[in-house]
């Protein structure tokens, strides 16, 4: 058993985030007063509350024991890469290539190895995407790079 690192870490992050928000807002936006609140009033107060809550979360975690959850690094990276690729390429390359490649990226971390099933999946999902979003819902997105 170890310390409750999740809470320790998150408590710290939230406290810092709160302080950051409060500091940035105090510096950049007018605070006003209770009667006529400025744009900075809420962010500063909320940031300070969060900082306190972060500390309240972190301190007891130091003495508490917990088994940390294993982090799925590879899965996380693949999913985010697929999302970002799709986001950047859908209007530039069209959704057919974007979907095909995004599916290949995402499925690269699936428990089952192999390329054939992944290519087949990519074809099926691309066809589905085309049928649902362009065929049925008629969203104005290009299918291929040349079909704008």
């Amino acid at each position: 058993m170890q310390r409750d690192y999740h809470d320790l870490l998150w408590g710290g992050i939230l406290a810092l985030f709160g302080l950051g928000v409060a500091g940035y807002a105090a510096q950049s936006y007018d605070f006003g007063d209770l009667r006529r609140m400025g744009p900075g009033f809420f962010p500063v107060i909320l940031g300070l509350i969060l900082a306190v809550l972060g500390i309240v979360i972190a301190i007891p975690a130091w003495w508490r024991q917990a088994q940390p959850e294993p982090i799925a690094w590879r899965e996380g990276v693949a999913v985010l890469a697929a999302l970002l690729f799709f986001g950047f390429s859908m209007t530039r390359l069209g959704i057919a290539p974007a979907t095909f490649v995004a599916v290949l990226i995402a499925s690269s971390v699936a428990a089952r190895r192999g390329l054939v099933w992944r290519l087949m999946l990519a074809v099926v999902v691309t066809a589905l995407t085309w049928a649902i979003f362009l065929g049925a819902l008629d969203m104005p997105i290009p299918l291929f790079p040349w079909s704008r």
């Binding site: 986001g87 959704i95 995004a102 499925s107 999946l121 999902v125």
Partner: peptide, 13 residues
């Protein structure tokens, strides 16, 4: 493993 790549694409759209 068949479902989640499609979910990702559908979320984006």
């Amino acid at each position: 493993r068949w479902l989640y790549p499609a979910i990702i694409v559908f979320i984006c759209l």
